[in-house]
């Protein structure tokens, strides 16, 4: 397991979480992967056993009860309802709720760059580099001036689309200060390959320094 997890590291890996949001999602993935492997093994075993010879013939009614009511209805219903509840609980935890220490930034996409601005430093914009404070929740208000794009920092949060005329708010948080790779994740034409950005998460001191720099 440790070997598998170490193979997950990477600047764009969703399985190398750098914050609470992606940790929640990565845990969800590992749980689903184990469950899926168990169910797959069950199905393959049942298929293989069908070929063994000398089985006693069963009556149709008894078979329907086992195969359809038991395995076809009750079993998936139990698994799926549990997973659905887990998924909705996880989803609720990721929502941008009101909190005292939330930093607010804006991300505006165009082909093929990102412009970021900051509520805490009015008038200040950066291109293709988003500055955020580390260990604090950050709400990114996402929009676009041309086609649809998607704001995605795989190690910090799931993705959220930038749609003309709409503003979507994404909550992300970095555990520690550092640099995180970001991507635009909705096909937008020939420059799509290189449509990326960088997120720099600051310690409290360096965040203060960033905000106070006069341009």
């Amino acid at each position: 397991m440790a070997a598998v997890v170490s193979g997950c590291a990477g600047p764009l890996s969703t399985l190398d979480p750098g914050g609470p949001a992606t940790r929640t999602i990565a845990n969800l993935w590992w749980v689903m992967l184990l469950g899926a492997m168990a169910i797959f093994a069950l199905v393959v075993a049942l298929l293989a056993l069908a070929f063994r010879s000398g089985r006693a013939p069963r009556t149709q009614v008894a078979s329907e009860r086992v195969w359809i009511v038991g395995l076809g209805l009750a079993f998936p219903a139990a698994v799926l309802l549990s997973l659905l509840a887990y998924g909705l609980w996880a989803g609720e935890r990721l929502l941008p709720r009101e909190a005292a220490d939330v930093a607010r930034v804006h991300a505006q996409a165009e082909r093929w760059s990102w412009t970021f601005s900051y509520d805490d430093a009015p008038g200040r914009t950066t291109t293709d580099i988003l500055h955020i404070p580390a260990s604090r929740p950050v709400d990114v208000a996402i929009t676009t001036t041309d086609v649809i794009h998607s704001f995605w920092v795989p190690r910090l949060a799931g993705k959220l689309d930038a749609i003309p005329g709409h503003v979507n708010v994404l909550r992300l948080e970095a555990d520690v200060a550092g640099t995180y790779a970001g991507l635009s994740a909705e096909y937008s034409g020939p420059g799509y390959d290189r449509h990326s950005f960088t997120v720099i998460a600051h310690t409290p001191d360096s965040w203060r320094a960033f905000l106070e720099v006069d341009e």
Binding site: L81, L88, G91, E92, L95, P96, R97
Partner: peptide, 14 residues
């Protein structure tokens, strides 16, 4: 029951 129960449990417009 299965598809509409979220009206009772999840955040309405967040």
């Amino acid at each position: 029951l299965w598809t509409l129960f979220p009206v009772l449990t999840t955040t309405t417009c967040g």
